[in-house]
């Protein structure tokens, strides 16, 4: 018998002594558990954020250690959410860190059967070239009545409802200046 174990360490007695009558709290912790420290306690910094899923706008606290997100929790300061997060919001650390997340640019050539790797800056330059070429090829100056159109119907876009306002602003500004009008997002859906 473990010499450290006494009558007082009997489970039932522990439960009564600690007030943990259901045996779900301190009465049932092991030494291992007692030695654990939450990731939130050892974080280098805590950054206030907003849940990226639905439009309730729950407050999040992002815990960062060594330049990496280690945990995301509800922000008790938020008057909207008061510290709560739903299953999606609670899982958002995995949104950021999940191993399946694609971290590299990829390219599929016409008729290609698989992805190829590509340098990001090469990809962005290729997109810029295609943007300019498609715009040129599909440009419409006037309609059949001679009224100005000054647009391209050859470039379209879908997305924005998961993005920041500032991002949507640059997208709308750039596309409109380029004459690309078929810009849409989930708000239409």
């Amino acid at each position: 018998m473990d010499p450290k174990k006494t009558f007082l360490s009997w489970p039932v007695v522990r439960q009564v002594r600690s007030g943990d009558f259901l045996g779900r709290g301190p009465a049932v912790t092991s030494a291992h558990t007692r030695e654990l420290t939450p990731r939130t306690a050892t974080a280098d910094k805590v950054v206030q954020s907003v849940c990226p899923y639905c439009a309730v706008g729950c407050g999040q606290r992002v815990f960062v250690k060594d330049g990496r997100v280690v945990q995301i929790e509800g922000d008790p300061d938020s008057p909207v959410s008061r510290g709560r997060l739903c299953p999606k919001g609670s899982a958002s650390e995995q949104l950021v860190n999940n191993p399946g997340r694609q971290r590299k640019a990829l390219y599929r050539r016409p008729g290609g059967t698989d992805w190829e790797s590509i340098e990001l800056s090469t990809a962005v330059e290729m997109v810029a070239q295609r943007f300019v070429e498609s715009r040129r090829r599909t440009w419409q100056d006037h309609d059949e009545h001679g009224r100005p159109l000054r647009r391209t119907m050859g470039i379209a876009s879908l997305g924005g409802a998961t993005l920041d306002n500032e991002e949507n602003y640059l997208i709308k500004k750039l596309f409109t200046a380029a004459g690309a009008i078929q810009i849409e997002n989930q708000a239409r859906i």
Partner: peptide, 12 residues
Amino acid sequence: HASIQGSTDIPT
């Protein structure tokens, strides 16, 4: 969506 209202106000 987190900014579906925003993407209507500043519309994409």
